[in-house]
Design a protein around this nucleic acid. Sequence first.
DNA 1: AATATTTGAACAAACGTTTGTTCAAATGAA
DNA 2: TTCATTTGAACAAACGTTTGTTCAAATATT
Lengths: 338, 338
Amino acid sequence: MSSKIKIIDIAERTGLSTTTVSRVLTGKAKQYRIGKRSQQIIEEVAKELNYIPNHFAATLKSGKTNTISLIVPTLGNPFFANIASLINNEVRKLGYTLIISDSNEDIETEILEIQQLVSRNVEGFIIIPSGENFEHIEQIYSQGLPLVLLDRYFENSNLPYISTDNYQGAITATKYLIEHGHTSIACIQGVKSSTPNKMRIKGFKHAMQEEGLTNIHVIGDDFSVQNGYQETKLLLRWKERPTAIFALSNTITMGCLKALKEENIKVPDDISIITFDDHLYLDFLETPITCIAQPVEHICKIGLKYLFSKLNNELELITDHVMLRPDLKIRNSVKKMS
Amino acid sequence: MSSKIKIIDIAERTGLSTTTVSRVLTGKAKQYRIGKRSQQIIEEVAKELNYIPNHFAATLKSGKTNTISLIVPTLGNPFFANIASLINNEVRKLGYTLIISDSNEDIETEILEIQQLVSRNVEGFIIIPSGENFEHIEQIYSQGLPLVLLDRYFENSNLPYISTDNYQGAITATKYLIEHGHTSIACIQGVKSSTPNKMRIKGFKHAMQEEGLTNIHVIGDDFSVQNGYQETKLLLRWKERPTAIFALSNTITMGCLKALKEENIKVPDDISIITFDDHLYLDFLETPITCIAQPVEHICKIGLKYLFSKLNNELELITDHVMLRPDLKIRNSVKKMS
DNA sequence: AATATTTGAACAAACGTTTGTTCAAATGAA
DNA sequence: TTCATTTGAACAAACGTTTGTTCAAATATT
């Protein structure tokens, strides 16, 4: 580790003070009336020595990090990875640095992660939470840290969020199935405690009941391929096999397809599928899958807009709770029953 | 922003010095013979006040961050997102923090990103580089920063890397096509300057020539869906249409499939496909796609092992350049020509 | 009882910046 | 020439930890 170049090295080299060097290098030359010549020579020497400022010293003194953080449940899920990529690009454009964290769908890890980020003086948080607890989030929020939840949120908390109207989305999906003559529908859910899941289940049940359907099946308990696979395997053994599956995420659908393939059940001839979340590949599958697509780009953009307006203390009256309408994308995975 | 709790607050509350508090809170109590009672009361008060150490102050003094960083070209590509997720979990187990950065496939961003990370005293780098330049990487490497490249590397540099044997992989794929009677093969490549791409092209050409095939088509220039789509659209207009496509990444394949679907060309009846990179969905496509699968988990694990042995100054004689064998996963996208 | 050793904890100096304030020199005005 | 103003830059005190060293009290040894 070659001994690093410090401001004082530049000061000595140029015969100027650390104060002056610091002010030039942080772009405050005009403000403090540093001479043109001094500016120039400082910049030259800094470049020549390949000076990289010590972020820790700077932050310790100034308190400013220009950094915000994004916590996602797992980057293994393309839905979240995609969000991470989108947000990363936007944040950079705004002159901030983004620290991306993967909480591994584990609340303890999430809590730890938040602690570390706070101790790193992160100035704002974008969180897709991993559990049903939110005390740790409310704690930092109440300390005044700008913060916004994406996708997942909490009903009995008023932490700000941008999400999809999962309730409506589920109703749309369910009604679509019912309109196509399906009355026996198995809904494979994700993490029971997560709000999106709750809302989707609520929408599903509501739509079923409204149509007078009482035979309601909700199964499963995880947004994973594994869960989709297992539950599908099981439901194929029911004495009265459902005619349609409503999968509550793209990962669950992936598992469904795996199980169906193994059992040689054809979509949509033998069973129909509709899923939450869109993805490019859904269009190229053996049977393109009809889905409820979330407006991911919008969620990200609005989330960032919200966060930065907080960050800049803009007092615009933006609502703290935003629900965006999902889209029904009709493809070929739902059969019209006669 | 409520004024944060500092070590001195705990010191005052407990009647002890900041020195003692610091030593207890960083687990050096035994080493410095702090009394049991003192330890206990300090820990109690720290918890009670919800003390979060100021990472910047600590690092500034100690120089230790326990942080390593991962730079990927884009999290939008599941291949990289997957790597990020895998590495994140492993790193955490090792008691380190991982900062994940997305360079957006842009070398300037990558350079900036590395600068920021260096100024954050990151102790090690895992990089999947985005361009053909590597001076900036060699610079930090020569400063003694532990570093390893994953997947992509540079031929005329001896930066350490863990990668797939892309040359062999391409030969395997090409021979597989040739064995199935294909002689007119279009190879859709990714970023020309990237080493994996170069090696794959080299393998492709080598295998073709070895079989006496001189009609070699290499087209395209990006690891993107867009590129796969456009090039496929174009090649379908050739007067002599190739009987097989060798796509050099999963994203390119995605674009291929989109184009083929639009033109109503069936795989493998009308055209065969083989691709680099495996993914769960490849199995569920209309035609499951035969692929050259990279040993991603191994790449990550070996990469981390390498990095941490450097980090801990273990002088084990580990090679700096590791090439792992890819696997041919045979599915249904290649037709036997008669 | 006198000396040596152990135990427990504090002093004070870093770490590399940023920043409110002061100060001298140069310039302009009268 | 004298006083006021502008210009350019330095002083020195933070920021919140960590850590080499010192020191007093308590205990053990002779």
